[in-house]
Simulated scan of single mutants.
Amino acid sequence: MSTHSRDDAIGEANASRKPAIIFIHGLWQKPSSWDRWIEMFDAAGYAALAPGWPAEIGGASAPETIGEVAAHFARIARALDKRPALVGHSFGGLIAQILAGRRLSAATVAIDPAPFRGVLPVPDSALRSAWPVLHNPANVNRNVSLTPEESRYAVANAVPETECDALYASSQATAPGRPVFEAAANPDPWTKAQFDTETAERGPLLIISGEHDHAVPPSATRAAFERQQHNPHAVTEFARLSLRGHSLTIDHGWREVAETALRFVRRFV
């Protein structure tokens, strides 16, 4: 999505006077991964947007930091007439929570979100999923691709091999390595993968977990929920979806996830 088309989408959302919702994809995905979600949420009466990350819009190359990505989506949220709902997957789920911590979300759904500071320990499967990036320190300044085998383990382990291959061919994209290193530096007090989980205006939050996710296993999503649940001012809920892996937003079972998110958003927005 170019800057022009992004601005057009914001203008159209404001002109529609419908409640807006921003979808934020994760690493190795594209904004088009949300196309079916946008169709569903538009039909439900929302003005849905799925902007790309800064490099996707501006054409910049790696590195791209968590702070830069959060600032980029914060600008989009602030350009809307009313606080939008936010739905993010993986690193997009982390970004959505960061924005909620900045009081920029009317309701947030974080799907298998990348961990923020304090979400420990890191499961072995998460380290293995991130290893294609972390094994080479030079990747901090590079865009990184997953091989089909790496994608099968980290993304599409819970679907048949034929579907895994189809998802890789249709939706796989290169991604900046720096956010993976930043998230891995979880104990660092200066990490950008942190935010105020207890702010009074965080808004309602639903964390969705895929039972068989390797990249962000249920233990990690549950730990994120338990930290977010300390917020005394806002609703915090958790949903664990059986037999689902990290590709749950784009594979054959996407509708179950989208309907779970939509039911939550409808309660508040």
Rank of each mutant, 00 (worst) to 15 (best):
M1E: 04
S2G: 13
T3L: 11
T3P: 03
H4L: 14
H4F: 05
S5I: 06
S5Y: 07
R6H: 01
D7R: 09
D7Y: 08
D7W: 08
D8Q: 08
D8H: 02
D8I: 06
A9C: 12
A9Y: 03
I10Q: 09
E12P: 05
E12N: 09
E12D: 12
N14P: 14
N14S: 10
R17L: 02
R17T: 02
K18N: 06
A20Y: 03
I21V: 15
I22T: 12
I22K: 08
F23L: 11
I24V: 05
I24H: 00
H25E: 05
W28K: 13
K30C: 09
K30T: 15
K30S: 12
P31G: 00
S32A: 15
S32E: 12
S32Y: 02
S33V: 13
S33E: 04
S33K: 02
S33M: 04
S33Y: 01
W34E: 01
W34F: 09
D35S: 14
D35M: 11
I38L: 06
I38E: 07
M40F: 02
M40D: 10
M40I: 11
M40K: 10
D42V: 08
A43H: 06
A43Y: 11
A43C: 10
A43P: 09
A43Q: 15
A44F: 03
G45N: 09
G45E: 04
G45M: 11
Y46E: 01
Y46K: 01
Y46W: 04
A47G: 04
A48E: 07
L49R: 02
L49G: 06
L49E: 05
L49H: 07
A50M: 13
A50Q: 14
A50W: 11
P51T: 07
W53V: 04
P54M: 04
P54H: 05
P54A: 12
A55M: 13
A55F: 13
A55C: 10
A55R: 14
E56F: 14
E56V: 12
I57K: 08
G59T: 08
G59E: 11
G59K: 11
G59V: 12
A60R: 13
A60H: 12
A60M: 09
S61W: 04
S61E: 13
S61H: 04
A62R: 09
A62C: 08
A62V: 09
P63Y: 01
P63T: 00
E64G: 10
E64S: 11
T65R: 02
T65F: 03
T65P: 00
I66Q: 00
I66A: 06
I66R: 07
G67V: 04
E68T: 03
E68M: 00
E68S: 06
V69L: 07
A70N: 10
